[in-house]
Design a protein around this nucleic acid. Structure first.
Lengths: 160, 160
DNA sequence: TTATTATTGCAACTTTATTGCAATAATGGG
DNA sequence: CCCATTATTGCAATAAAGTTGCAATAATAA
């Protein structure tokens, strides 16, 4: 965590604080991964997190998976399942408190959080089924995919 | 299609009709896969479809993938993305007309359709984003997982 | 029946994610 | 400040879901 002293990246400090607050060990992978999520403007896939980590961080692929899972378990990050069978994560700090909806681009897979909470309709479940939470996802085209449909078709590999 | 003459399985006849109605070629894989979906009481994964196909059908794994995609493209089946990054399919005939909500068990992954249509709230999207459809999914425990939580944790491998 | 070409089956491959285990390093106690 | 304990990490191997290329097969039209 050598950069934290006079850090040009406030997110690293913020990440350190958040990790420390859990009471668990504070490690470089945890801090760096969380910092990447804090810096991101949208939900990131495992691959995107890996790509955004500074090479100096030298965090193993598998460790990223484990850290993302750990962050999720501690409530420091949210895990979102998209249509393209790829997990996406965003820092919990970014997710607006309480339940909220998601938007996913059906072209590139980009996921963002929407402010509005679903006006929970009283859905009737079969007998014995126990509801926990309601997820509302708007599918459509993001601003980058809407005009000429540039066909990205992978896991949000936009330049943005 | 040998069974179709005096079929003890009305679903095969129904499947044949549906496939024929598309105008495309009527093949054993298409009919058999659709029949399996019609027989199912819930959305099935590729693996589940494979398991339920009679051995006599001898349909290749890859062909099942392609047929499921084909059925979806023709509107004969619906494709649902779950939390466990596995596609599930159900016969369109089962899906209630129009938009409807889904329920997914967070323990075993089971997916069923719910009657109620989401009372579409006016979600506000960022500028340039184009909505296509809204998906509403209730997460919770299905009747089989609710009491003692028997921990299935795979892709709906219940005995039902 | 035969020709045409949509489908299928097979094998290899890709992507995403998970598991086992020895090596490493964060923290608490002395 | 150093050491011991044990949570984490890194590496290699494996798993699961799905895709691709292409020759062989089999629906349909003529």
């Amino acid at each position: 965590m050598s950069q934290s002293a006079n850090s040009p990246q406030p997110n690293i400090d913020q990440a350190e604080d958040a990790v420390r607050a859990t009471g668990a060990r504070m490690t470089r992978p945890r801090v760096m991964v969380l910092a990447v999520l804090l810096e991101a403007e949208r939900a990131l896939t495992h691959t995107e997190v890996e790509a955004r980590l500074p090479r100096a961080a030298e965090v193993d692929r598998v460790t990223i998976y484990r850290v993302l899972e750990w962050l999720t378990a501690r409530g420091l990050a949210h895990k979102i399942a998209g249509d393209d069978r790829v997990w996406r994560f965003n820092a919990a700090a970014h997710a607006h408190a309480g339940p909220h909806a998601h938007f996913q681009c059906s072209d590139c897979g980009e996921v963002i959080c929407l402010q509005e909470a679903p006006a929970r309709p009283a859905l009737k479940l079969p007998a014995g089924y126990q509801p926990q939470r309601v997820e509302l996802t708007v599918k459509g085209l993001c601003a980058h995919c809407v005009p000429a449909k540039p066909r990205a078709r992978a896991a949000a590999r936009h330049s943005h």
